[in-house]
C-alpha cells in the first residue's frame, strides 16, 4: 500500500516537476511565468497529436516540447519585446491556450475537446519520471557550475550588472523563456502520454500554478522545489486512493471534497511559507538601461 502510494506519488509528480523546472528557468532569469499552465496545455496537445501521428512517444514528446516553445515565443514577444505586465500577459496566454487547444482537437479529429486515445503500446511507461529527476539534477548543476547558469541568475538578481559586463540581458531572458516553454511543454507531454493516454480540455488542471507554488515554496532552488512538487504529488496520489473510502457512517466522502485536497495543501503551504521565501530581486521588472 505504502510502496504503491510512493510509486504513484512519483508518477503524478512528473508533469509537475517538469513544469517547475520551466518556471525555474524563467523566474530565475527575472521573468514571472504564470503562462506555465498554458504552455503545459499546448505541450500536452502537441505530444498527443505527435504520438498519434508518428506512433512514437519520443517524437510526440518532441512535438510537445516544440508546442511549449511556440507558446513561450508568443509570451516572450509580449513581455520582453513589448514589456507588458507579466502577470496579466501570463493569464492571457493561459486563457488563449485553454480556448485554442480544444478547438485544435475539433479541427484535427472532429471531436469536441479531446483527442482519440493513444494505443497503450505507444505511450510512455516510466521514462518521463526518470527524465524529470535527471532534469532536476541538471538544473542544479547548470545554475551552480556553468556560465549560462551564472548569467541566468544575474539576469534575475541584478540585470544591470549583467549588462555592465557586456552581456545582453534581453537575450538571456529570451533564452530563459524559451527554455521555460520547452520544459513546461515536456510537462504537458508527460500529462498526455505518460499520466494518461489522450489530450482533454483543461487537462493541466492548475498544475502550472501548482508548479509555481512549488517554486516559491522551494525558494527558487531546484531540489527543494522538486521536493515541494513531490509533496503536491503525494496529496494528489492520496486523494486518488481516498476516493470511495468510507471514513465514517455508510456513505463515502463526496469525491469533490477529496479532489480539492492538493489545492488546499497548495494554499496552506503558500500561506504558511511564502513570507520566508526570497524571490529573485529583479523578478517581474522589465530591464531598462538607464
Amino acid at each position: 500500500m505504502l510502496i504503491q502510494l510512493i510509486g504513484s506519488t512519483f508518477r503524478v509528480s512528473t508533469p509537475l516537476v517538469f513544469a517547475m523546472l520551466g518556471g525555474l528557468a524563467s523566474e530565475r532569469a527575472g521573468v514571472v511565468n504564470l503562462a506555465l499552465e498554458g504552455m503545459m496545455l499546448f505541450g500536452a496537445l502537441g505530444a498527443a497529436v505527435g504520438t498519434l501521428a508518428t506512433h512514437s512517444p519520443w517524437l510526440g514528446a518532441l512535438c510537445g516540447l516544440g508546442s511549449g516553445v511556440l507558446l513561450a515565443a508568443v509570451y516572450g514577444l509580449v513581455v520582453l519585446r513589448w514589456r507588458a505586465n507579466q502577470v496579466v500577459a501570463g493569464m492571457g496566454i493561459n486563457m488563449l491556450a485553454l480556448g485554442l487547444t480544444p478547438e485544435f482537437c475539433k479541427m484535427l479529429y472532429d471531436q469536441t475537446g479531446r483527442t482519440p486515445a493513444i494505443p497503450l503500446a505507444e505511450h510512455f511507461q516510466a521514462a518521463p519520471m526518470y527524465g524529470a529527476w535527471i532534469g532536476v539534477a541538471l538544473a542544479w548543476f547548470v545554475l551552480r557550475f556553468t556560465r549560462p547558469g551564472l548569467w541566468l541568475g544575474f539576469a534575475g538578481e541584478h540585470p544591470g550588472a549583467l549588462d555592465a559586463a557586456g552581456i545582453s540581458v534581453t537575450r538571456v531572458r529570451w533564452l530563459a523563456v524559451l527554455a521555460s516553454g520547452a520544459l513546461a511543454g515536456l510537462g504537458g507531454a508527460a500529462l498526455s502520454t505518460f499520466s494518461s493516454s489522450f489530450f482533454s480540455r483543461d487537462m493541466a488542471g492548475g498544475r502550472g500554478y501548482m508548479a509555481l507554488a512549488a517554486l516559491i515554496f522551494g525558494k527558487w532552488r531546484p531540489l527543494p522545489a522538486a521536493l515541494a512538487c513531490l509533496l503536491f504529488g503525494f496529496t494528489d496520489a492520496l486523494q486518488d486512493r481516498l476516493q470511495g473510502v468510507v471514513v465514517w457512517g455508510r456513505e463515502p466522502i463526496p469525491v469533490q471534497f477529496i479532489q480539492i485536497l492538493p489545492y488546499v495543501v497548495t494554499i496552506l503551504v503558500l500561506a504558511g511559507f511564502v513570507g520566508q521565501s526570497r524571490a529573485p530581486k529583479a523578478l517581474g521588472v522589465p530591464f531598462e538601461r538607464d
Partner: peptide, 16 residues
C-alpha cells in the same frame, strides 16, 4: 552593479 545574493568571486568574474 553587484548581485547581493552572489559571492564576490562570481560578481567579479561575471562575463569573463
Amino acid at each position: 552593479m553587484l548581485a547581493g545574493a552572489y559571492s564576490a568571486l562570481d560578481n567579479i568574474l561575471l562575463g569573463a
